[in-house]
Design a protein around this nucleic acid. Structure first.
Length: 479
DNA sequence: TTTCATGTATAGACTGT
DNA sequence: AACAGTCTATACATGAA
């Protein structure tokens, strides 16, 4: 009976695998041995990857709202005389949506607003951050409107002034900006002290609780490629054997950015409080979109690879872990996953290793790689090899040990966090997948479109169950 | 496999200095 | 007239269905 109801909703759903599925640590790659993935688990991984796709309707709905907001904001800044420097803003879409690795819903967008400095920049590494954070200043005094963001020395660009002014203008913009159909409205979220973003949320009118979309607007200072990247990143990412030396040169010859994010920690000195963080978002996006060892990767059905799917699954697992162990894994974020992913791609370069069919094996490999980084406490920033994203105190020792164990548990117990909730009781009607929001309440923020389809599915499931019951009764009576 | 919508890169037109 | 910056049309890539 249960399976009938399930099948009615999702005929492609594989059977729930027997748990635990043995993964042992015998291999030198932590947590990975090819032969040990059971066919059931492999099927589940494929199935889960399918489920992470964004729906076209959702994308269309969200893209229209976000693009209109973005274009209107840009127009507002261009016309604004209050802060003439912001008239120079240019848009650079970044983050997982535009990298095509956003999962579950098209509900989070990252938009960088980039600004060219009036002259060459000087930057000084802030100590103890291994080249991630910088004091940024102009080489010479200027009459450019950027003046209003400078400190008393007339040269140093103040990150706090920059982001505060951005807030001011975005708030001013939002006061008059209306969503076309009036059913929702954008609000500016509260300022967060360590965040470089002005975060906007789209709320339903009359239901202030439910956030339908969120957009991070991140201002960024552009460093001309003529100046080159800071010393800590000068060597460029380790992609020689993967993307090739020529591709690497092309990457290094691009601009990089500073975003107004101060370094973590309390009791910062006055210089650190005005610190900027280096950003390679646009390069990351480029690498992820042209990710092949050969040019032909993903060009045809025959050369399709599973790299992006692996990253999506890892992001899903990380979200799940953070949901399940909120406090313990506070320090963990999706960027750790992305970094481990990039390292894995650069060492496991050959396209054939990432063939579409190999998804389960590749994902387990990636998971093992992240576990390995956690176990060794070493996860170098992909562009700044000396910056360890698992270094303390940013990533506390305790959290690292917890993460190592959590990842090991996932690997050795058949990925319970990627699985549906425990086997359903006999009369359960809904398919396990549809009940997923119960397990991870915030992972899936339902859009209006989704609500409709959920109701439809539920209705169909109930109808099928009733029908099957009737048939069973009828047969019983006939006997 | 195909069809479609969205996102991106590019060239050439346009505009103001 | 020359130039840089901006806008626009177009083709192409990507991924969902």
């Amino acid at each position: 009976m249960n399976s009938t109801a399930q099948d009615a909703e999702d005929s492609s759903a594989p059977a729930i695998p027997a748990i635990p599925l043995a993964f042992t640590d015998q291999n030198d790659t932590p947590g990975f041995q090819e032969g040990l993935i059971s066919p059931e688990l492999a099927q589940w991984i494929r199935f889960r990857a399918e489920k992470l796709k964004l729906r076209l309707d959702d994308r269309k709905w969200a893209a229209e709202l976000v693009n209109h907001l973005r274009d209107s904001l840009l127009e507002f800044l261009k016309k604004s005389d209050d802060q003439p420097y912001f008239q120079l803003a240019r848009v650079l879409n970044s983050g997982s949506y535009y990298e095509m690795v956003k999962i579950h819903n098209a509900n989070e967008f990252d938009i960088m607003l980039t600004f060219p400095p009036p002259s060459r920049l000087n930057w000084t590494e802030l100590g103890q951050y291994q080249g991630l954070f910088y004091q940024v200043s102009l080489c010479r005094p200027t009459h450019s409107p950027i003046r209003s963001f400078l400190l008393e020395d007339g040269l140093t660009i103040s990150a706090s002034k920059f982001i505060s002014e951005m807030y001011l203008l975005v708030r001013r913009f939002i006061r008059t900006y209306k969503v076309s159909d009036n059913s929702c409205h954008w609000v500016v979220n509260r300022k967060r002290v360590n965040s470089p973003a002005v975060t906007l949320s789209l709320l339903e009118v009359g239901n202030g609780k439910q956030e339908l979309l969120s957009v991070d607007v991140v201002p960024a200072l552009e460093v001309s490629s003529k100046q080159g990247w800071p010393q800590a990143a000068r060597a460029g990412p380790d992609v020689d054997h993967w993307l090739g030396k020529k591709a690497k040169r092309a990457l290094i010859s691009q601009n990089c950015f500073f975003v107004p994010k101060r370094p973590p920690g309390r009791n910062l000195d006055d210089i650190a409080k005005e610190g900027w963080r280096i950003s390679f978002s646009h390069i990351e996006k480029q690498i992820i979109s042209s990710h092949g060892n050969k040019k032909t990767c993903c060009e045809s059905a025959a050369t399709k690879c599973c790299r992006k799917q692996c990253l999506k699954l890892l992001k899903c697992l990380i979200e799940g872990l953070k949901q399940r162990y909120t406090k313990e894994l506070d320090a963990l974020c999706s960027y750790h996953g992305k970094t481990a992913f990039l390292h894995t791609l650069s060492t496991r370069a050959e396209d054939s290793l990432w063939a579409r069919r190999q998804l389960p094996v590749c994902f387990m490999h990636l998971l093992g790689a992240l576990e390995g980084h956690a176990r060794s406490g070493l996860l170098p920033h992909f562009f700044i090899p000396n910056a360890n994203l698992f270094a303390q105190p940013t990533f506390p020792r305790k959290a690292l040990v917890f993460l190592t164990n959590a990842l090991e548990e996932q690997r050795t117990h058949g990925l319970p966090l990627l699985m549906p909730p425990a086997p359903a009781p006999p009369m359960e009607i809904c398919s396990p997948y549809e009940t997923q929001p119960l397990q991870y309440p915030d992972l899936q923020k339902t859009s209006p479109v989704e609500n409709v389809s959920n109701k439809m599915l539920f209705f169909v499931a109930v109808a099928v169950v009733v029908f099957v019951c009737l048939v069973a009764c009828w047969k019983h009576m006939a006997n």
